[in-house]
C-alpha cells in the first residue's frame, strides 16, 4: 500500500510500461512512504542469489537474523539449493553452519561442489532426542560464531518458535526450519513454500517459491526459480 502525500505528476501515456515508470517515480520521491519496501528504513537483507526471489522479499534478501520456515511437501525439493548462496556467504564470513538432525546423511562431496567448506560444518545427528536437538538449536542461535542453523523439525509449538526467534535475535544468527506443513499462526518472521511448478512442462527444473509471510511484506508473493542453477 502506498500513501501519497503530494500530488503526483501526470503518469506516462504508455500503459504497458506505466507500472515500472510509476515505480521509479515513486522511488525518487522522498515524501513518499512505501509500505511494501523496507529497504529505505535501514532494513537490509542478504541477497538470496536469486534475483527473482530478492524482488519479492522485503529488504531484497534474507534477513540477517531471525527464524525462517521453509515448507516443502517432502524433503529433497531443492530447499538446500535455495540456500547455497547464503551458505557460501556464511562460510566467507568464517562463521559456522550447524545442521541439526538432517533427515539423511549430509554428503560432503556435494558441499565441496557447491564450494561450501566442510571445515565449518557441523552435524547434530538424526538420532538425537528432540529435546536435545532444540536445546542445541537454541544454544547455536545464541552463539555468534554460528552464522546459520538448519534444523529439520515438524510441529513445533508457537512458544518454542518464539523462544528460538528470540535466541536468533540475541546471537544475530539466521535459523532455518524445514517442515512439511504450514502452520498459519506461526510466529516466524519468514515463511516460504517450495512447490514444483506443474504448469511449465518444458523446463521442469523450475520451482515455485511462495512467500507466505515475510515481515515487511504486505501480501503473499510468489515467483518461479530455476533452483539448480548453482550446480
Amino acid at each position: 500500500m502506498t500513501i501519497i502525500r503530494n500530488a503526483l505528476e501526470t503518469p506516462e501515456p504508455k500503459p504497458d510500461k506505466a507500472f515500472s515508470h510509476i515505480d521509479e517515480l515513486l522511488h525518487d520521491n522522498p515524501n513518499l512512504w512505501r509500505g511494501c519496501d523496507m529497504a529505505d528504513q535501514g532494513f537490509h537483507g542478504r541477497s538470496t542469489g536469486f534475483s527473482q526471489l530478492d524482488d519479492i522479499l522485503p529488504g531484497r534478501g534474507w534477513p540477517n537474523n531471525g527464524l525462517m520456515e521453509v515448507i516443502t511437501p517432502q524433503w529433497g525439493m531443492g530447499e538446500l539449493q535455495l540456500l547455497i548462496p547464503l551458505m557460501r556467504s556464511i562460510i566467507e564470513q568464517r562463521k559456522w553452519i550447524l545442521w541439526i538432525s538432517p533427515p539423511y546423511l549430509l554428503y560432503a562431496p556435494a558441499l565441496a561442489q557447491a564450494s561450501i567448506s566442510t571445515d565449518q560444518v557441523l552435524v547434530v545427528k538424526l538420532d538425537t532426542s528432540c529435546k536435545d536437538a532444540l536445546w542445541s538449536m537454541e544454544k547455536a542461535l545464541q552463539t555468534e560464531n554460528c552464522g546459520l542453523v538448519l534444523a529439520w523439525q515438524n510441529w513445533l509449538p508457537g512458544k518454542v518458535l518464539r523462544r528460538l526467534q528470540l535466541a536468533a535475535e540475541t546471537g544475530d544468527t539466521l535459523g532455518v526450519l524445514f517442515k512439511h506443513h504450514d502452520s498459519k499462526h506461526s510466529p516466524s518472521p519468514i515463511r516460504l513454500k517450495i512447490k514444483d511448478s506443474q504448469s511449465q512442462q518444458s523446463s521442469f527444473s523450475k520451482a515455485k517459491i511462495s512467500v507466505i509471510k515475510a515481515r515487511g511484506n504486505f501480501r503473499p508473493l510468489s515467483t518461479h526459480i530455476d533452483l539448480y542453477q548453482y550446480n
Binding site: A108, P109, T118, V121, L122, V124, K125, D132, S136
Partner: peptide, 15 residues
C-alpha cells in the same frame, strides 16, 4: 554441545 549430546551425536564431515 558435547557435554549435553555426547561425542557420538555431534559430527563434523569431510570428503
Amino acid at each position: 554441545l558435547r557435554a549435553r549430546l555426547g561425542d557420538d551425536h555431534i559430527k563434523s564431515i569431510s570428503t
